[in-house]
């Protein structure tokens, strides 16, 4: 074993870093996906970190941690916001919805079904953030135009889909929320036939 590796036995003297962070932890009550959650976290932790690392809600992803991609979007106060730039202690008591909270019990949200059905989630990494942004759009505008969808999702980068299947999935979900029998178009599923 090289000299530069330290053996650690139990909680010895050299666990100062751990005690330092425990010393500075704050206790918070968060309302995540309709549940009251109690967490103890460092004051400088972001909501993204607490969701993923403390609450193990790893459905919320990260792409830059600087507000430049939209991957970590969650709903706070019903609005899509970037969890990488939210201080957890500023979120106390405010309703937080993550991708894990979109389904109603065992039933996925119509957006989740439409995204899966149309391949609007390819790698699926930007998907949780986009679903949250889309959910907020449909809450405000049940029948959005293509332009409204474009704008509402303009803060979410996706590298796989070229966004088009995402637009179509939002449109399909919107139609299904009024008419459960609504189906995607032939061209959506098969491309154009001459």
């Amino acid at each position: 074993m090289p000299q530069n590796v330290k053996r650690r036995r139990g909680r010895g003297r050299d666990s100062a870093a751990a005690s330092h962070s425990s010393r500075s932890k704050v206790h918070l009550r968060l309302r995540v996906n309709g549940e009251e959650q109690e967490v103890a976290c460092a004051p400088h932790s972001t909501l993204l970190e607490v969701l993923r690392e403390d609450l193990r809600l790893t459905g919320t992803k990260h792409g830059c941690e600087l507000g430049e991609c939209g991957t970590c979007t969650v709903l706070l106060d019903g609005r899509p916001q970037l969890s990488c730039l939210l201080l957890t202690l500023e979120c106390e008591g405010r309703p937080i919805v993550t991708v894990e909270g979109l389904a109603e019990g065992p039933r996925p949200h119509p957006l989740q079904i439409a995204f899966a059905e149309l391949g609007a989630a390819q790698c699926g990494y930007c998907t949780p953030g986009i679903l949250c942004a889309a959910r907020s759009l449909l809450d405000a505008r049940p029948s959005p135009t293509r332009q409204e969808i474009r704008e509402a999702l303009s803060g979410n980068l996706c590298r796989c889909t070229g966004y088009l299947k995402i637009f179509e999935a939002v449109e399909l979900a919107a139609r299904r929320m009024k008419d459960p029998a609504a189906q995607p178009s032939e061209e959506t599923l098969h491309g154009r036939r001459l």
């Binding site: 992803k61 989630a121 790698c123 599923l189």
Partner: peptide, 23 residues
Amino acid sequence: KPVRKVDGLSKCAGVTLFADDIV
């Protein structure tokens, strides 16, 4: 046939585990 991706719903539910999700 335009079969729904077999991993589609998991990805949309946020339960697919990516490498950084492993703890």
